[in-house]
Design a protein around this nucleic acid. Structure first.
Length: 966
RNA sequence: GGGCCUGUGGCGGAACUGGUAGACGCGGCGGACUUAAAAUCCGCUCCCCGUUCGCGGGGGUGUGGGUUCGACUCCCACCGGGCCCACCA
C-alpha cells in the first residue's frame, strides 16, 4: 500500500502558485546569475579600454576582500560574511555612479593546500584547482558581483612570474638609511665604485680598501650584505612536525606553530631573510595615514615595538660590551651585566679560572649546576641547560632566574667600578644587543636575579613614600647618581645621554622588537625562488626572461615530517623537498659570461608571498609586460574623499591578519613604492575587520560532539538542551566540521535561497561584531522577502500588484525617510539597520496596499532599487516585471527629498526633572518660548508641577523640553 | 603581568555628535481563516505594583560612584566575557 507523503499532498494543495518559495527563489537566482555572467555585467574597465567611456568623469572605488585559501573542506556560512558585505557595498557604489573594482582571487600556495594534497595522495595542483572550482561555485551561488576576468590564483603561472619578479626587485635593492628608502642595488655599486660610499665591511673588507682593490667575490659578498632579501645563518624556528622553518610571527608565545600547534625548535640555519626592520620606522609612522581600526594599528605598533633609550658601552679586558637600555638614567645602579648565553663575546671573555671575588652562587644557579672547576665548564653546562628549556618552562618560571658568572668583569663607565658579567637566558640574543646592564633597583627581573645571585642592589630613583615593593619602576628624583641627583627621570635621561655622547661612552638610540622576516620554507607547494648559486655558493638573480621558474613535477612532494619529539630533537636540519628533484636542481644559464651550470635555490617562498601583492594583480590581470601597468595602478589606487591615503578604498577581512599579512604586504608595497612601481605609500587606505559568525556546539556526557542541527531546547528559555532525548552540554565558539556545528551555505540556499541567506547574515548584527548563527532565525529574513514579493506580485495569479498612481503624503514621507536611512546604513556598512528600515517600509505597505489597490509605482521602484544591493536576485526579477529591460545594477540609487523628512508638527516629550511626564504637539519650527509656554500649559505637566516652583526650563528645539522644578 | 575591546528584554540586536531606552527580527502568548494542522494575516510581549481595564505609579542598559537640566552614551573604581602581547632591557 502506498501513501502520498503528507507534506507533498498538502503542500500542493496549499501553496499558491506564485508564492516566493525556496523553489521560486532558486529559479530566480539561477536565472539572474546566468544573465549577469553572460552579459559580463560586473566587468569594470580600466582606463584606456573602450568600455571605460561610460565611467569617464565618474569616481572609482577599489573594494577588496581578504582572499581565501581554497581548502578542501568547503565553505561554511561564516566564511562568506565579509564577501557578502563587500558585495552589497560594491553594488551600492555602482548604483551611486562609481566605477567599482571588486574581484575575488585564491591564496592557493602554502601549508593548508599542501597538507590536503598529502592527505588525499594527489598532486597539490590537482587538489588545489579542484578546490578553487568548488569554491567558485559556492560563491557564485551567493550572487556575488565579482569581476570574473580579474580573478587570479597565486598558483597561476602568470601570477607566479610576477611574484618572482617582485622578489627579484627586493633582492635587487638595498635600503639607503640616509634617504630612508630602498634603492636599486646598482646605485650602491656605483657609490662604492666612485668612492662616494665607503666599502668597508666587518668581514669582507675590514681595512676599508678601495672598491677597485677588492676581488669580485668580496665585492659581491659586500653587496649581498646590503640586499633587502639576503641569506643569513641564524637560529630559526624549525618545526619538525610541519617539516619546515617558520617566521617569528608564525610561532606562538609558548613556542609552537601557529598552524597546527606543533612544537618549534631553534636551529641555526642559512635561510632567506627580508630586511623588514629597515622599514620599522616607516611602517610605524605611516599607520597615521590610514583609516584602520585602532586595535589593529595598536597591534602593529606593539609588534614593531619601538622603544627609545641609549646604547651604553661597558669596557672589558677584550671588547666593549654594548647594551641597549630605555633607562640610561639608572646606569649608576648597574651592578652587574648579563649577556645572552649565545652572545658572541662570551667565548672571548670567559676566564680561565674563577676570580677571587667569585661568590658561591655565581658559579651557577640552575638545576644541575655543579661546582664547576672553571668558568668555561659552568658556561657550557649552563648553555646546555638553557638550550633544553622550552619557552613554556621559561615563562612559567620567570621569577626563578637562572644563569652563571663567566669569570670576567666590565667597567661601569659612570661609577668606574668593576662589575661581574653573567650569562642568563632572561636576556635574549634577538633583542637590543643581546646584552644588558642590570639595574636591580629599578628593574624587577634584575632584582630577582640579584637576590638569587647575592649581588648589590643600589636604588637610583627615590621610591615614592610608602613604597614597600622590590624594584621601583616609577617616577621619582634620581639618587646615588652623582650629577644626576635630584633630577626627575626625563631630565636625568637627557642629561646622562649628553654625558655619554661627550665621553664617547654611548649614544641616544631607538630600538625595535621587529625582526627581519624569515622568508624561505622547506616545502614543495610554494613559489620557487628565482635564484641560483654559482661555484662560490653566492646567490645570483635569474634573468627576468626565465620567469616564471616553475616547480618540477614530483611524485613525492611531501616534506620529511618528524612528529616524534625525540627524532625531532636529533633531526639535523630541515630538508627541502625540491632537493629530491635531482634533474631540476641544476640548471644551465648564461648570466653574462657564457652558459654555465648553476645550482638552484631549493627552498620555496612562504604562503605570504602571493598575498603581499595580489591586490595589484587584480588591477591588471592580463598584463604580460608588467605586474601592473602604472597608469592602471594610479587610477585604481588613487586617493578618494573617504580614503586620503590612497590604495585600496575598502579592505575587509578578519582581525587574525592584523600583524602577519597586513605587515608583510605593507612592507612589500613600500619597497615597490620606493622603486617607483606603485604610487601610494600604503596599500590599504581603509581597513575593516568583520566579526566572525559563531555557533553553539553540543557535547554528550562522554564529551563527544553531537550534530548541532539535531539538538533541541527542552522548553523555550529553559536553557536545557537535548539530543535524542539526552541532555547535552553547550559551548559557544567557532563553527567547524569537527565541532559538528558547521552549516553549509549550499543547504541554506537550497532551503531558503541566496537572497535570504545574504539578508540573514547582514541582519544578524553589526558587521564588525561576532555573532551567533541560528538557523531557526533565518525564517525571519525569508518571511520578509516573501511579504515583499507578495506586495508586488499576486500569489494566486502572478500579476503585478503595482498601481500607476502617486503615493499619498504619508507614504511619500515614509519612503523618503527610508531612503535617507538606507543610504546612511549603506555608507556606514550598517546593513542590519538598513534592512530594519526596509522591513518597516514593507510592513507599512502590507498594511496599506490592500485598500489602495496595490503599491504605487514610484514607491515600488524605489523599494526594489533599495533592496537590490542586499537581495539582488529578487530585486532584478521585480525590476524586470516592473517593465525594465536593463539590469538594475547601474540604475541610480533612490534619492530623498530633504523637505519630506521634516514634519510640520512634531510630538515632543516633556520631562520634569529628567523623567518623561507628558507629550506636547508643537509646530516643528516653533520657537523656544512658545514651546516652553505650551509645555507649561500642558494639563499633565501642571499636575506634576503642583506645589513646586519652576526653576529652569530647557528647550531643545525639535527634541524635548525638560523642566527643573522643586 | 601589560595593553585593547566589550557588557541593553527569553535570544540576535536598535538608539545619529549626551535628549522619549528596547526600533527591527526570532521566540512566546492571544485572535482571525480552517473540520483540523501548516502557511498566511492581525494584536500583545523589559520588570514590579496598583487598576474603575481607559490607564496610573515605580524601577530599569553588569555593579558602585561622579559630571550634567538630562547619561546606554562622558569620567573614575570594581566585576564578568573576549582579543592581543608577554623575562623586549
Amino acid at each position: 500500500m502506498t501513501e502520498t507523503p503528507t507534506t507533498e499532498r498538502q503542500g500542493l494543495a496549499a501553496t499558491p502558485a506564485h508564492r516566493y518559495t525556496a523553489q521560486l527563489a532558486g529559479d530566480i537566482e539561477a536565472k539572474w546569475q546566468d544573465r549577469w555572467e553572460r552579459e559580463k555585467l560586473f566587468y569594470s574597465p580600466n582606463p584606456g579600454e573602450p568600455e571605460f567611456a561610460r565611467f569617464e568623469g565618474k569616481p572609482k572605488r577599489f573594494i577588496l576582500d581578504m582572499f581565501p585559501y581554497p581548502s578542501g573542506a568547503g565553505l561554511h556560512v561564516g566564511h562568506p560574511l565579509g564577501y557578502i558585505a563587500t558585495d552589497i557595498y560594491a553594488r551600492y557604489l555602482r548604483a551611486t555612479g562609481h566605477n567599482v573594482l571588486h574581484a575575488m582571487g585564491y591564496d592557493a600556495y602554502g601549508l593548508p593546500a599542501e597538507q590536503y594534497a598529502v592527505q588525499t595522495g594527489q598532486h597539490p595542483r590537482v587538489t588545489t584547482e579542484q578546490n578553487i572550482t568548488r569554491m567558485r561555485e559556492q560563491l557564485r551561488r551567493l550572487g556575488l558581483d565579482h569581476d570574473a576576468h580579474r580573478s587570479v590564483a597565486t598558483i597561476d603561472l602568470a601570477f607566479v612570474r610576477w611574484t618572482q619578479w617582485i622578489f627579484l626587485q627586493i633582492f635587487g635593492s638595498w635600503f639607503d638609511t640616509d634617504q630612508n628608502k630602498a634603492r636599486p642595488i646598482s646605485e650602491l655599486e656605483s657609490e662604492f665604485a666612485s668612492g662616494a660610499r665607503e666599502a668597508r665591511h666587518e668581514d669582507f673588507n675590514p681595512d676599508g680598501k678601495a672598491w677597485s682593490d677588492l676581488d669580485d667575490v668580496k665585492r659581491r659578498r659586500i653587496v649581498d650584505s646590503y640586499r633587502l632579501a639576503y641569506l643569513h645563518e641564524a637560529p630559526v624556528n624549525w618545526c619538525p612536525a610541519l617539516g619546515t622553518v617558520l617566521a617569528n610571527e608564525e610561532v606562538t608565545a609558548d613556542g609552537r606553530s601557529e598552524r597546527g600547534n606543533f612544537p618549534v625548535y631553534k636551529r641555526p640555519l642559512k635561510q632567506w631573510m627580508m630586511r623588514i626592520t629597515s622599514y620599522a620606522e616607516r611602517l610605524l609612522r605611516d599607520l597615521e595615514l590610514v583609516n584602520w581600526p585602532e586595535p589593529v594599528k595598536l597591534m602593529q605598533r606593539n609588534w614593531i615595538g619601538r622603544s627609545e633609550g641609549a646604547y651604553i658601552n661597558f669596557p672589558t679586558a677584550v671588547d666593549d660590551i654594548r647594551v641597549f637600555t630605555t633607562r640610561p638614567d639608572t646606569v649608576f645602579g648597574a651592578t652587574y651585566m648579563v649577556l645572552a648565553p649565545e652572545h658572541p663575546f662570551v667565548d672571548e671573555l670567559v676566564a680561565d679560572a674563577w676570580p677571587d671575588e667569585t661568590k658561591t652562587a655565581w658559579k651557577g644557579v640552575f638545576p644541575g649546576a655543579g661546582d664547576a672547576a672553571a668558568p668555561e665548564d659552568a658556561v657550557s653546562a649552563y648553555r646546555a641547560y638553557a638550550a633544553s628549556r622550552t619557552d613554556v618552562d621559561r615563562q612559567v618560571e620567570t621569577k626563578e632566574k637562572t644563569g652563571v658568572f663567566i669569570g670576567a668583569f666590565a667597567t661601569n663607565p659612570l661609577t668606574d667600578t668593576e662589575i661581574p658579567i653573567f650569562i642568563a637566558d632572561y636576556v635574549l640574543m634577538g633583542y637590543g644587543t643581546g646584552a644588558i646592564m642590570a639595574v636591580p633597583g629599578q628593574d624587577q627581573r634584575d632584582w630577582d636575579f640579584a637576590t638569587s645571585f647575592d649581588l648589590d642592589i643600589i636604588r637610583t630613583v627615590q621610591p615614592t613614600e610608602g613604597f614597600d615593593g622590590e624594584a621601583f619602576t616609577g617616577e621619582g628624583p634620581a639618587i646615588n647618581s652623582a650629577f644626576l641627583d635630584g633630577l626627575d627621570v626625563a631630565a636625568a635621561k637627557k642629561r646622562i645621554i649628553n654625558w655619554l655622547v661627550e665621553n664617547g661612552a654611548g649614544e641616544r638610540a631607538v630600538n625595535y622588537k621587529l625582526r627581519d622576516w624569515l622568508f624561505s620554507r622547506q616545502r614543495y607547494w610554494g613559489e620557487p625562488f628565482p635564484i641560483v648559486f654559482d661555484e662560490q655558493g653566492l646567490p645570483l638573480a635569474m634573468p627576468e626572461s626565465s620567469l616564471p621558474v616553475e616547480l618540477p613535477e614530483m611524485e613525492d612532494f611531501a616534506p620529511r615530517v618528524l612528529d616524534d619529539e625525540e627524532a625531532a630533537e636529533k633531526a639535523p636540519v630541515p630538508e627541502p623537498p625540491l632537493g629530491r628533484a635531482t634533474e631540476w636542481r641544476a640548471v644551465t644559464l648564461d648570466l653574462g659570461d657564457g652558459p654555465k651550470e648553476y645550482r638552484r635555490e631549493l627552498n620555496t617562498m612562504p604562503q605570504w608571498a602571493g598575498s603581499c601583492w595580489y591586490y595589484l594583480r587584480y588591477l591588471d590581470p592580463d598584463n604580460d609586460d608588467a605586474a601592473c601597468a602604472s597608469e592602471v595602478e594610479r587610477y585604481w589606487m588613487a586617493p578618494t574623499d573617504e580614503n586620503a591615503a590612497g590604495g585600496v578604498d575598502l579592505y575587509v577581512g578578519g582581525a587574525e591578519h592584523a600583524v602577519l599579512h597586513l605587515l608583510y604586504a605593507r612592507f612589500w608595497h613600500k619597497v615597490l613604492f620606493d622603486l617607483g612601481h606603485v604610487s601610494t605609500a600604503e596599500p590599504f587606505g581603509r581597513l575593516f575587520n568583520q566579526g566572525y559568525i559563531q555557533a553553539y556546539a553540543y557535547t554528550d556526557e562522554r564529551g563527544v560532539y553531537v550534530d548541532a542541527e539535531e539538538v533541541v531546547e527542552d522548553a523555550p528559555g529553559s536553557g536545557v538542551y537535548k539530543h535524542n532525548g539526552e541532555v547535552v552540554g553547550r559551548e559557544y565558539g567557532k563553527m567547524g566540521k569537527s565541532l559538528k556545528n558547521a552549516v553549509a551555505p549550499d543547504d541554506i540556499c537550497r532551503d531558503f535561497g541566496a537572497d535570504t541567506l545574504r539578508l540573514y547574515e547582514m541582519y544578524l548584527g553589526p558587521l564588525d561584531a561576532s555573532k551567533p548563527w541560528n538557523t531557526r532565525d533565518i525564517v525571519g529574513s525569508f518571511r520578509f522577502l516573501q511579504r515583499f514579493w507578495r506586495n508586488f506580485v499576486d500569489e494566486e495569479t502572478g500579476s503585478l500588484r503595482v498601481i500607476d498612481a502617486e503615493p499619498d503624503e504619508e507614504t511619500r514621507k515614509l519612503l523618503h525617510q527610508t531612503i535617507a536611512d538606507v543610504r546612511h546604513g549603506m555608507e556606514t556598512l550598517a546593513f542590519n539597520s538598513a534592512i530594519a528600515r526596509l522591513i518597516e517600509l514593507n510592513n507599512y505597505l502590507t498594511k496599506t496596499s490592500e485598500s489602495a489597490g496595490g503599491v504605487p509605482r514610484p514607491v515600488a521602484e524605489a523599494f526594489v532599487l533599495m533592496l537590490a544591493p542586499l537581495a539582488p536576485h529578487v530585486a532584478e526579477e521585480l525590476w524586470e516585471r516592473l517593465g525594465n529591460t536593463d539590469s538594475l545594477a547601474y540604475a541610480p540609487f533612490p534619492t530623498f527629498d530633504e523637505s519630506l523628512l521634516v514634519e510640520d508638527t512634531i510630538e515632543m516629550p516633556v520631562q520634569i526633572k529628567g523623567k518623561v511626564r507628558s507629550k506636547i504637539v508643537v509646530a516643528a519650527d516653533a520657537d523656544q518660548k512658545s514651546v516652553e509656554e505650551t509645555a507649561l500649559a500642558d494639563e499633565k505637566v501642571q499636575r506634576f508641577l503642583e506645589g513646586q516652583t519652576v526653576r529652569k526650563v530647557i528647550v531643545v528645539p525639535g527634541k524635548l523640553v525638560n523642566i527643573v522644578a522643586g
